[in-house]
């Protein structure tokens, strides 16, 4: 099981802050996971429509879209940061 967490407008579009889910075995990279999210219904299709701008963190560490998911337990999705 993998915990998926969402922040800012990604969280609002998905409609929940987090969920715990079994990822398909075929999903092994961040890019594949973003593509898979789009297939999970209208809400997810909308939330991940502009997947290229969505940032991903694997176990609280930034990861590029080409990164392997490895054995990440917590995967976060969020817009570009606007702190500071």
């Amino acid at each position: 099981m993998t915990k998926l967490v969402y922040f800012a407008w990604v969280r609002e579009r998905v409609g929940k802050p987090d969920e715990t889910i079994d990822l398909p075995d075929s999903v092994t990279t961040v890019a594949a996971l973003l593509d898979w999210q789009k297939t999970r219904g209208e809400v997810y299709a909308h939330a991940f429509e502009h997947a290229s701008v969505i940032r991903v963190a694997l176990d609280k560490t930034h990861a590029g879209h080409d990164a392997a998911l490895g054995d990440a337990r917590e995967i976060a999705f969020f817009p570009p940061m606007t702190g500071g």
Partner: peptide
């Protein structure tokens, strides 16, 4: 520190306006 914190630290700003509405998430 400020340059890196702004682009790497996971914080997101949203505006709440004086007219009572919730504005947009601030774009990077």
């Amino acid at each position: 520190m400020m340059d890196y914190l702004k682009t790497r630290a996971p914080f997101w700003k949203r505006e709440h306006l004086i007219d009572g509405t919730t504005g947009a998430w601030v774009e990077s």
